[in-house]
Deep mutational scan, measured.
Amino acid sequence: AEIMKKTDFDKVASEYTKIGTISTTGEMSPLDAREDLIKKADEKGADVVVLTSGQTENKIHGTADIYKKK
């Protein structure tokens, strides 16, 4: 799966169907969080990951919607 910015995804959204939401939390780098989200998306058969939230304090927390091409 590839990560797309919401603004970029909005241009092609009609080509995809939302298949779920994924999240990651833990003591990790932003890059590790990104890789974890991609891994989870791949496991669910998603083609595209669109980040919906991200937070960093002591731990990273990120959520994303996942989509499959129609």
Rank of each mutant, 00 (worst) to 15 (best):
D36C: 12
T52C: 11
F9Y: 02
E43S: 08
E15F: 13
K68Q: 05
D10M: 10
D32K: 12
P30N: 12
T7F: 10
G62I: 15
D32I: 06
H61W: 14
F9D: 01
I60F: 12
T21W: 06
K11D: 05
D36F: 13
S53A: 10
D65P: 03
I3F: 09
I19D: 02
A41E: 00
K70E: 05
D65F: 05
Q55I: 13
A64F: 14
D65H: 06
K5Y: 14
I60N: 10
K39F: 05
A1V: 14
H61N: 09
E2T: 15
G54E: 15
K6S: 08
K69M: 07
K44P: 00
P30F: 13
S23Q: 10
K5A: 13
A64H: 08
P30K: 07
M4V: 07
G45L: 04
S29H: 08
T7K: 10
T7S: 12
I22Q: 01
K40M: 08
L51C: 11
D65Q: 04
T21I: 07
G45F: 06
E15R: 11
L31A: 15
G45M: 05
D47H: 10
I60T: 11
E43R: 08
K39V: 05
K44H: 12
H61E: 11
I60Y: 13
T63V: 09
K5F: 14
E57H: 08
V48P: 02
T17C: 15
E57D: 11
G54L: 15
F9K: 00
Q55W: 15
E2F: 14
H61P: 10
D32V: 06
M28P: 05
E43Y: 07
A64G: 04
Q55G: 11
K59H: 12
D47R: 02
G45D: 05
D42A: 13
A46T: 00
D47Q: 06
V12F: 05
A41G: 03
S23N: 08
A41L: 01
Y16H: 00
Y67N: 00
E35R: 14
K69S: 04
D8S: 04
G26Y: 10
D42H: 09
T56N: 11
V48L: 08
Y67K: 01
N58R: 04
A41Y: 00
K59N: 13
T25W: 11
G54M: 15
V12S: 02
A46S: 03
M28F: 06
D10R: 05
D36L: 12
V50Y: 01
P30Q: 13
Y16N: 01
L37E: 00
K40Y: 05
G20S: 03
K59W: 15
K68S: 04
D36Y: 15
A33P: 05
S29T: 09
S29L: 08
V12T: 03
E43L: 11
L51P: 04
K5D: 15
G62V: 15
I22V: 08
S14Y: 11
L31W: 13
A1Q: 02
K59V: 12
D65S: 05
N58A: 11
T56E: 11
S14N: 12
E27K: 10
D32R: 10
L31C: 12
T24W: 14
K39N: 05
E35T: 08
E57V: 08
K18H: 15
I66T: 02
I19K: 00
I60C: 11
S29W: 11
G26R: 12
T25S: 13
T17D: 10
A13P: 02
I3Y: 06
T21R: 07
T24H: 05
L31D: 15
K69W: 05
G62K: 11
D65M: 05
K70H: 09
Y67M: 02
I3W: 10
H61M: 11
D65W: 05
I22F: 01
I19M: 07
T56K: 08
T25E: 13
I38T: 04
D42W: 12
M4W: 13
T7I: 11
V49F: 03
E43V: 06
N58V: 09
K70Q: 05
K70N: 13
S53V: 12
H61G: 11
K39H: 07
I19R: 00
I3H: 04
T56P: 10
D65V: 07
K39R: 13
V50W: 03
L37A: 04
P30L: 13
S29F: 09
T56C: 14
K39Q: 08
K39I: 04
A46K: 00
I22T: 02
E43W: 05
I3M: 07
P30M: 12
I22G: 00
N58Y: 11
T7C: 12
L51S: 02
K69L: 08
K68C: 06
I3R: 00
S29G: 08
S53P: 06
D47I: 04
V49P: 00
D36V: 09
I19P: 02
D42K: 13
S29V: 05
I19N: 01
V49M: 09
M4Q: 02
G20N: 01
I66S: 00
A46W: 00
E43K: 08
E27V: 12
T21A: 07
G45H: 07
I3D: 00
E35W: 09
Y67H: 01
S14L: 08
D36G: 05
V49C: 05
K6V: 06
K70P: 03
D10W: 07
A41R: 02
I19A: 02
K69D: 03
V49H: 00
G62F: 15
G45K: 05
T24C: 13
E27R: 09
D36Q: 10
N58S: 11
I66M: 05
L31E: 15
E15D: 12
D47F: 03
D47T: 07
K69R: 09
D10Y: 06
G20R: 00
K44R: 14
I60S: 09
Y16K: 01
R34S: 07
V12P: 00
K39P: 02
F9T: 00
Q55L: 12
M28C: 09
A33I: 09
K70A: 07
A13H: 07
E2G: 06
Y67A: 01
T24G: 04
S53E: 14
D36T: 07
D8Y: 05
S53Y: 15
R34Y: 14
V50S: 02
G54F: 15
T24P: 04
P30Y: 14
I66R: 00
H61K: 11
E57Q: 10
T25D: 14
R34E: 09
K11G: 05
E57N: 10
R34Q: 09
G20V: 02
T7E: 15
M28K: 08
E35V: 11
K18D: 02
E57K: 05
T7V: 13
D47V: 06
A13V: 06
T25K: 09
Q55N: 14
V49G: 01
T21D: 04
K44M: 15
S23L: 07
A13Q: 08
I60D: 08
I19S: 02
D8F: 04
P30R: 03
E35M: 13
T25P: 10
I3N: 01
Q55D: 14
V48D: 00
T17V: 14
T7G: 10
K40S: 05
T25Y: 10
E15H: 12
E35N: 13
T17Y: 15
G54R: 07
E57R: 03
E57S: 11
T17S: 04
A13D: 03
A33E: 07
D10V: 07
T63C: 08
G54Y: 13
K18C: 11
E15S: 10
T24F: 11
V48K: 03
D42I: 15
I66D: 01
A33D: 03
N58W: 11
P30E: 15
G54Q: 14
